[in-house]
Structures are given as structure tokens and as C-alpha cells.
């Protein structure tokens, strides 16, 4: 890649990166607190991960190995584009291997493979304010956070039970961080909420349009809100992955034809491919040999 010199390293200018790093440090110091920051225009539309990209750009270094996932997949447009973006503007190594990555930027999933100390998970967040749809005034919600008035959050869960007989919120399920701030874990399925609790990895959240950054430091308590008689529980699936036969993972439904044919497969493509390489086979796994996953080195 010869045009690296035409960009500042990782696209953003150094002053902007310093500003974002300050916001990140403040976020880490106050787990779950939404830190306002001067979000920049990025060469992509809002809603495509402008917040996550700015956070990644501010923390990435030449030795980092970047993985980008979108709904768990490494091969969808958003993931491929952002990976290519950083390959171009920071000349870093990119990978699809969860364990081999130092920074994982994610949209709406936490990888199935357990994260380890030293890894950073960067979330793309559309709406950072968990109270937004209950109380539309930002002045009021900030006051509610400041005074720890979170009764309203339970009103939403109450409504769920009253209407559906159980807590029907399945994604963006509110959590309380370190016993203090109620936080929106971004629209990850609630299946992933337990993975945030006491995770050894640093978790950073960037919301570009809303101009907020927040963080969960390693080994921090992240507790999903619930009622005593309606405890928090994650989704369960009554069949394993159709390709790799994995159980206790988050599955996507894939429509196969227009006659109602469908299958459930791992939403985490890296996890699924690894399992198939290890020889696990689901009932719909094709017979062809899979291409092994690639680590593309920096050039």
C-alpha cells in the first residue's frame, strides 16, 4: 500500500485522537458513564460504526492486529469495509481469528471464543442512552444518571412482563455496571450480556452520531437488570448449529428457499469455521473442504 503517507496514521489527526483518548480514559475511570466527546465526520455514514471507528483509530498502533465483526460475521460489508479501511490508513495486520486479535471492533455481538486480558473490544453503538425511549429529554436522563434514579428502567421490564408474561427484551438489554451506572450494552443480543461480566478484556463503546463514549474496564461487574420473581435469562436454542453442531452459542436463522426451508447457524463465523476445521459437522454441513482462515500480514 503506497498511499499510507497521504493519511495521518489511522486517519484521524493527532489532536482528535488525544481528545478521544481523554474521553476513553474518563470512561474507564467511571465505568458505564457516558462521556461526551467531539465526534468527527468520518468517511462513512452515521449508523455504520463512526463511533467505533473513531475509538479504534485512537487506540490502534502499528503492532496491533485488528478483527472486525458485524453481527458476528467477519465477511459482511461493514466488517470487510472497516477492516480494509484500517489496513489502508494504519497499515496494520488484520485477522478473522478472535484469539489472535488485539483489537476487535464489533457491531452487535461478542465473539463466542472467550476474550483474554490485553484484548480490547470496541462496540459500535447507535443509541448510548438506555433511558432514551422511556424519557425523551436528555437533560432529564442525565440528571437521572447523576442521581441514580433508575426506577424507570424497571418500568420497561414491568411492561414486558405485563404484556408478554416474561421479559421480552432480547437485545440492548440494560445492565448495571459496577453497581452504579445503568448502561446500554449496544444492540447485542442479551445472550452476550453474561460475557461482559468480569471480562478480562477492556470494553470500549463509541457512539458517533450521539457523540458519547463509555467503557467497561477489565474485571468489572456487569449485571443485567431483572425482577426477583422474573430473573434474567438468556435465549436458548432447541437445535445446534446446522453447520458445526455447536450448542450453547448464538444462532442466526438463514432462509434457504422460498418454501419455508431454513437453518440455524452460528452467528460467529470465525467460531463456526474453526469448529468445522476441527471436524465438527452439523446436519447441513456441505461436503466440500473449507478454505482455512487467513491472517493477512501488514505490508
Amino acid at each position: 500500500m503506497t498511499d499510507i503517507a497521504t493519511y495521518n496514521f489511522a486517519y484521524l489527526d493527532e489532536q482528535t485522537k488525544r481528545m478521544i483518548r481523554r474521553a476513553i480514559l474518563k470512561g474507564i475511570a467511571i465505568p458505564g458513564y457516558q462521556v461526551p466527546f467531539a465526534s468527527r465526520e468520518m468517511p462513512m455514514p452515521y449508523g455504520w460504526g463512526t463511533g467505533g471507528v473513531q475509538v479504534t483509530a485512537s487506540i490502534i498502533g502499528p503492532d496491533d492486529v485488528l478483527k472486525v465483526i458485524d453481527q458476528g460475521a467477519d465477511d459482511t460489508t461493514n466488517a470487510v469495509s472497516i477492516r480494509a479501511f484500517f489496513k489502508k490508513v494504519a497499515n496494520v495486520a488484520v485477522t478473522t481469528d478472535t484469539a489472535g486479535a488485539t483489537i476487535i471492533q464489533t457491531r452487535h455481538r461478542i465473539p463466542e471464543h472467550p476474550l483474554t486480558a490485553g484484548q480490547v473490544l470496541v462496540y459500535q453503538v447507535p443509541i448510548p442512552e438506555p433511558l432514551r425511549f422511556l424519557e425523551p429529554r436528555e437533560t432529564e436522563t442525565r440528571k437521572m444518571h447523576a442521581l441514580e434514579e433508575y426506577g424507570l428502567m424497571h418500568v420497561k421490564l414491568y411492561e414486558d412482563i405485563a404484556k408478554h408474561g416474561r421479559i421480552a427484551t432480547t437485545y440492548a438489554y440494560p445492565v448495571k455496571v459496577e453497581g452504579r451506572y445503568v448502561m446500554d450494552p449496544s444492540p447485542t443480543p442479551k445472550f452476550d450480556n453474561p460475557k461482559m461480566h468480569r471480562s478480562p478484556a477492556l470494553q470500549l463503546f463509541g457512539a458517533g452520531r450521539e457523540k458519547r463514549i463509555y467503557a467497561v474496564p477489565p474485571f468489572t461487574d456487569v449485571v443485567s437488570l431483572d425482577f426477583e420473581d422474573h430473573p434474567f435469562e438468556v435465549q436458548t436454542f432447541d437445535q445446534p448449529c446446522a453447520l458445526c453442531a455447536a450448542e450453547n452459542v448464538y444462532l442466526d436463522e438463514v432462509i434457504l428457499d422460498d418454501h419455508g426451508g431454513h437453518m440455524f447457524v452460528c452467528s460467529d463465523t470465525d467460531h463456526c469455521e474453526k469448529r468445522r476445521q476441527e471436524g465438527h459437522r452439523g446436519h447441513l454441513a456441505p461436503e466440500i473442504h473449507l478454505a482455512s482462515e487467513k491472517v493477512e500480514p501488514a505490508q
Partner: peptide, 19 residues
């Protein structure tokens, strides 16, 4: 939000967590 939640909100605000 429903009538029940309207009445219950204050209870939840003071820490009631039993639906």
C-alpha cells in the same frame, strides 16, 4: 406505559424488585 406500571413506578424507584 400501562396503568399498572404507572402505579408501580414509584415502588420500583424506591427499590422494589418483585414483579
Amino acid at each position: 406505559v400501562s396503568a399498572g406500571a404507572n402505579v408501580g413506578e414509584r415502588l420500583m424507584a424506591v427499590g422494589d424488585r418483585h414483579y
